[in-house]
């Protein structure tokens, strides 16, 4: 602090402000906890934390796990909205804990954190994602072509690329599928995420198996179970127009059949 430049004075003042914890607020995180090694019942547990409102729900979960109760179990990897590990139901809405700032979800009231719905809860916020990924695998989410391998890359015009750009953004977090009431009902519906990822290849000009994927989604538990609830579009942390993608698959099916 010896060099008295304007900048340094400013940052010293800031340092002082931050070291007084004046910016911290008390938030209550109400977490739905379940540990099959202790009980067959899930229960709500409240944690009171001193947090900066600009921090994220993931930071609050970290604080609990690292400083209060190390048994709290949740998935996260990248912590920056890319890996899709930490979708959870926060204040009743599916979101990524790493993309949800405390100040954006009214930290004055207790913030509820639950596992996403419609999938078996294994422990605390961790669910069994297998049925979700089974539906994903069932739509063949990989490039399928006929004929010989080209010796160079498969070219595509920017218009053709634009056609399915939105659905390439999916990070498979399951926020959409686990927000869909049709999926909650019986878990047999392919679900928005699988349809989004089918859409990504159905409308790819380089792919040649659109017909097969459409046939799969034309079946009993395919796109026709969608009731246009729009929960998926609201839930998607990547801002994908999920319901629109589903409707485009429906339209492709109808125009192919008639």
């Amino acid at each position: 602090m010896s060099t008295a430049t304007v900048d340094n004075n400013h940052s010293a003042a800031l340092d002082a402000a931050e070291s007084t914890d004046a910016h911290l607020i008390t938030v209550t995180l109400r977490v739905r906890r379940y540990n099959p090694e202790v009980s067959d019942q899930a229960s709500w547990v409240d944690y009171k934390l001193e947090m900066d409102p600009k921090e994220r729900v993931l930071d609050a979960l970290h604080k609990i796990k690292w400083e209060i109760d190390g048994t709290l179990t949740f998935r996260r990897s990248c912590a920056h909205g890319i890996c899709g590990s930490d979708a959870m139901r926060i204040n009743g809405r599916n979101r990524l804990a790493c993309k949800t700032l405390l100040k954006d979800i009214n930290p004055e009231k207790p913030i509820t954190v639950e596992p996403i719905k419609g999938l078996a809860v294994l422990k605390d916020l961790v669910v069994d994602m297998e049925p979700f990924f089974q539906a994903y695998r069932d739509v063949m989410p990989f490039l399928i072509t006929k004929g010989n391998e080209p010796t160079r890359e498969r070219l595509q015009s920017s218009e053709d690329r634009e056609r399915f750009d939105d659905t390439t953004k999916c990070i498979l977090c399951a926020a959409c599928t686990s927000s869909c009431p049709v999926f909650w009902n019986d878990g047999q519906y392919f679900g928005p995420a699988a349809i989004v990822n089918a859409h990504r290849f159905i409308f790819d000009s380089r792919d040649e198996a659109a017909e097969q994927r459409l046939e799969i989604l034309n079946d009993r538990d395919g796109v026709w179970r969608c009731r246009t609830t729009f929960n998926c579009t609201d839930a998607c942390p990547r801002g994908i127009e999920v319901t629109k993608a589903i409707q485009e698959v429906k339209r492709a099916l109808i125009t192919r059949r008639f």
Binding site: V121, P131, Q134, Q188
Partner: peptide, 15 residues
């Protein structure tokens, strides 16, 4: 304890 299952689970053989 048994895990908390949703009503019906999707398996490899369904749908």
């Amino acid at each position: 304890a048994p895990v908390i299952e949703p009503p019906r689970a999707r398996t490899k053989r369904t749908p």
